[in-house]
Amino acid sequence: MDKTDLDTRKGLPDALRVLLETYPRDGWTRDPGFDGLIRFWLDRHMMFRRLMAEMETGTELLLDRKTAPDAFARQLSRYGGMFVNGLHEHHTIEDAHYFPRLRAKDKRIDRGFDILDADHHALDGHLNAFADTANATLRQLDDRDRLQSQAGAFRDRLSDMARLLNRHLIDEEELIVPVILKFGSADLGG
Results as ranks from 00 to 15, higher is better:
S159R: 11
A122C: 11
A153D: 14
A104L: 10
V177K: 02
L87V: 08
L164G: 05
F113H: 02
A136K: 08
D70Q: 11
H90I: 09
L158V: 04
Q150G: 01
R108Y: 03
Q140R: 13
F99D: 01
G152P: 08
G112V: 02
M161Q: 10
A162S: 10
Q75N: 12
L102T: 00
F83T: 04
E174P: 03
P69T: 05
H91D: 13
N135R: 12
P69K: 05
I180C: 04
A73L: 06
A153T: 11
L158I: 04
A131V: 07
I109H: 03
F130H: 07
R108Q: 09
S149V: 14
K66C: 04
Y79M: 15
R167W: 04
D145A: 15
D124A: 10
D143L: 07
I115T: 04
D132K: 11
H120C: 07
Q150K: 14
D160I: 02
Q148V: 05
Y79W: 11
D132S: 14
L87Q: 06
L87K: 04
I176T: 01
F99H: 07
N166E: 07
L102V: 02
K66Y: 01
R139D: 15
A104D: 13
L116Q: 12
A134T: 07
N128T: 12
L123Y: 06
D119V: 06
G125T: 08
S77H: 15
F83M: 09
N166G: 13
S149G: 14
S159G: 13
T137G: 12
R78F: 09
P178S: 00
T137Q: 12
Y79T: 12
A136T: 11
Q75M: 14
M82S: 10
K105A: 05
D132R: 14
G80T: 06
H121Q: 13
D142V: 09
L138T: 08
D106P: 04
T133D: 09
V179I: 12
H121Y: 13
